[in-house]
Computed example of a mutant assay.
Amino acid sequence: MKKVTKAVIPAAGLGTRFLPETKALPKEMLPIVDIPTIQYIVEEAKASGIKDIVIVIGKGKRAIEDHFDSNVMLEENLEKKGKEKMLKSIQKTNDMNIYFIRQSYPRGLGDAVLTAKSFIGNDPFVVMLGDDLMEDTTPLTKQLMNSYEKTGASTLAVMKVPHKETSKYGVIDPVSEVSDGLYNVRNFVEKPDPKDAPSDLAIIGRYLLTPQIFDVLEHTKPGKGNEIQLTDAINTLNQTQSVFAHEFKGDRYDTGNKLSWLETNITFGLKHPEIEQELREYIKKLGQKLTKEDEQQKN
């Protein structure tokens, strides 16, 4: 059985939820305190043992390419000034093999994955979405790789969500829990109405897929939004070979909309050694101010 050493990171979306900021700046480059979101994804891949990454980009995404390119002048400047910590922070992924491929038209997540077919070849691979940051003792991508070593089958990451929020996600219809946190799946349902949701286990942004998914994607017709949906292709794949779901029990941070991105920044800011204390004091003062305003409104 082949080892998983490759990852696909789709980053060709228009980022309309963050306009006007994302008119010129790729959404994936929006910072969590001082680190671009996509940097966290690449670092998770590296920590999981991934060697080669292809980032699927579109028009206006040049900043992502520049970010993962080495900046010799900057590195020499930091080295001369003895700023070793800063130097290491910008060299974290210099040893990764990172490639770029263009998705010329926004035809959906399934199409973005399909553009990586020639890069992946006949190997199993991981798809990592940039809207979800995951924290756990063992990286989520590595957890999926560990499951694959046992089953040899495609495995999706899922997480329990409040039942009323199932309409925001793809949700699995589990057959059984074959081992702790690993489910055999009957069906994958895209954004079901809560009253129709088969479970509270929602698909989150990590997928480990066998290369057979490419043959399926090539024959998958556009679905919701006239886009090729990866979930539809996975459903079809599940008819000929088992697809499992691995339950993630760590911490997930959503960066896909303005509010959740701000919440993630605050959470990470409260753990950042440079600003933790000052941010904590600011939040306390802000809380006191808001409490006074609420009391004044009541009176």
Results as ranks from 00 to 15, higher is better:
Leu114Phe: 15
Ile41Arg: 09
Gln277Glu: 14
Asn94Phe: 05
Arg62Tyr: 11
Pro211Lys: 08
Asp294Thr: 11
Glu43Tyr: 03
Thr166Asn: 07
Ile275Gln: 02
His163Cys: 02
Ala245Leu: 03
Asn235Tyr: 04
Lys92Gln: 13
Thr255Ser: 13
Thr141His: 00
Asp215Trp: 05
Asp69Cys: 11
Ile9Asn: 02
Thr141Phe: 00
Lys27Cys: 12
Lys249Asn: 14
Lys61Ala: 12
Val126Lys: 01
Leu208Pro: 02
Val54Trp: 09
Ser70Gly: 02
Ile64Val: 10
Met73Phe: 13
Ile275Arg: 08
Val126Ala: 03
Gly82His: 10
Asp254Ile: 12
Asn184Val: 00
Met134Asn: 06
Val42Ile: 14
Met73Leu: 15
Asn238Met: 11
Leu133Asn: 01
Ala24Asp: 15
Gly58Glu: 08
Lys285Met: 14
Ala12Pro: 01
Ser104Gln: 11
Gln277Ile: 06
Asp254Asn: 15
Tyr99Val: 01
Thr138Met: 04
Ile90Thr: 05
Leu237Arg: 02
Ile275Thr: 12
Glu293Val: 12
Lys224Ala: 09
Arg107Val: 02
Pro124Asp: 05
Ile50Pro: 05
Asp136Pro: 01
Gly60Met: 07
Ser179Leu: 06
Val175His: 06
Lys221Met: 09
Met73Arg: 14
Phe268Pro: 03
Ile50Val: 15
Leu129His: 05
Glu135Ser: 08
Val42Cys: 03
Glu165Met: 12
Glu28Asn: 14
Val113Gln: 01
Ile234Ala: 04
Pro222Met: 13
Leu87Thr: 04
Gln39Gly: 01
Asp251Pro: 00
Ser167Cys: 06
Pro273Leu: 04
Ser154Lys: 04
Asn77Pro: 00
Ser199His: 07
His272Gln: 08
Tyr148Gln: 07
Gly250His: 04
Ser118Ile: 10
Leu19Ile: 08
Ile50Gln: 08
Asn122Gly: 05
Pro222His: 13
Gly250Met: 05
Glu274Gln: 12
Tyr99Trp: 10
Pro26Cys: 07
Phe125Lys: 08
Leu262Lys: 09
Leu217Ser: 05
His163Asp: 07
Arg252His: 11
Glu190Val: 11
Phe125Arg: 06
Arg252Val: 12
Asn71Val: 03
Ile41Ala: 10
Asn184Ala: 12
Leu201Tyr: 13
Pro124Ser: 07
Val42Glu: 01
Ala202Lys: 13
Glu218His: 06
Leu182Ile: 13
Lys142Asp: 00
Thr22Ser: 07
Gly15Trp: 10
Val54Tyr: 06
Lys160Tyr: 09
Leu182Lys: 04
Arg107Thr: 01
Gln91Thr: 08
Lys3Ile: 00
Gly121Ser: 09
Ile266Gly: 01
Gly15Ala: 03
Ile9Trp: 02
Thr22Asn: 05
Gly223Met: 10
Leu182Asp: 02
Ile55Val: 14
Gly250Arg: 06
Val4Arg: 01
Phe18Tyr: 06
Tyr183His: 10
Lys195Gly: 00
Phe248Val: 03
Val56Gln: 09
Lys164Tyr: 15
Ser70Val: 08
Asp193Arg: 02
Pro222Ser: 12
Asp200Ala: 03
Lys195Thr: 09
Lys160Thr: 14
Gly256Cys: 07
Lys224Val: 11
Val161Lys: 11
Asp173Thr: 00
Ile9Pro: 00
Val158Tyr: 06
Gly170Arg: 12
Asp173Leu: 02
Pro106Gly: 14
Lys249Asp: 09
Lys80Ile: 13
Thr210Gly: 14
Arg252Ile: 08
Lys27Ala: 13
Leu140Pro: 00
Val127Ile: 15
Phe119His: 12
Pro192Met: 13
Thr16Pro: 05
Lys59Tyr: 10
